[in-house]
Amino acid sequence: MQRFFHDELRQLQDNLVLMGERSIDMTRLVMQALETGDDKLALQVRGMDDAVDDLEKQVDREIMRYLTLFGPMGSDVRLLLAARDIAHDLERIADEASVIAKRVLVISQRGPLKDLLHVPEEGRIAIEVLRLALDGFVEGDLAKAKLVITRDAEIDLLNRKNYEALFGRSGDSIKVSASNVELIFISKALERIGDHSKNISEQVIFILSGEDIRHAR
C-alpha cells in the first residue's frame, strides 16, 4: 500500500539528486574555467555554493521530520541514514569546487599556466565518477556503485602523478611557481571529490544491500 507520506521520501530523494546535479555542474564549470582561464565562470561557480548549502540543510530537516513522524522501517531507515551522509558528501564536493574556483582566480591573476599537468584529465574522471555515483543512487544500481570505488583509484593515481611532476618522487627536488602550488591544491581538491564520490557509493551499497563497507581493511 502506498501511503501519503511516501511522497515526502521521494521529495527528499529528489532533493539529494538536485544537490548532486548542482555539484556536478559546479565541478564541470570550474574545470572549464581552469582550462579556458575564464574568470567569470570561476566567479559563477563561487556563487553557486550557497544553494547547495541550503539544500543540505533542507535535506537534513526532511530526514529528521520523516524519522520523527512517519516511523520508517527497513530500507526506508537505511535510505534516511544514508541520505544524511550523502547530502554531507555532496555539500563537501560543492565546497571543493568552490575552493578550486578561488584558486583558478589566483592563477589567473598571475598569468595563465602553460602546463596544467594531468589536472584536466583528473577533473574529467572526477566528474565521470561523481556522475556514476549519482546514477548508482538514482537507479539503485549496485554495479555502478561498486565501479565508483574502483575508479576512484584512477583519480588518486593522477593526483600523485601531478605531485611527482612538480616535486619529484621524493618530494624535495624542484623549485615550483606559486601558480604550480595552486595547481597542486586543485589536484588535491579533485582527489577529495573522488573520495566523496566513493563515500556516496558506499552509502548506496548500504541502502541497497544493508552492507556497511566503510573503512574496509
Binding site: N15, L18, E21, E62, R65
Partner: peptide, 10 residues
C-alpha cells in the same frame, strides 16, 4: 527539477 516541489507542512 526544482526546489519548489517541496511543499510546506500543511
Amino acid at each position: 527539477m526544482s526546489n519548489a516541489r517541496i511543499q510546506p507542512r500543511p
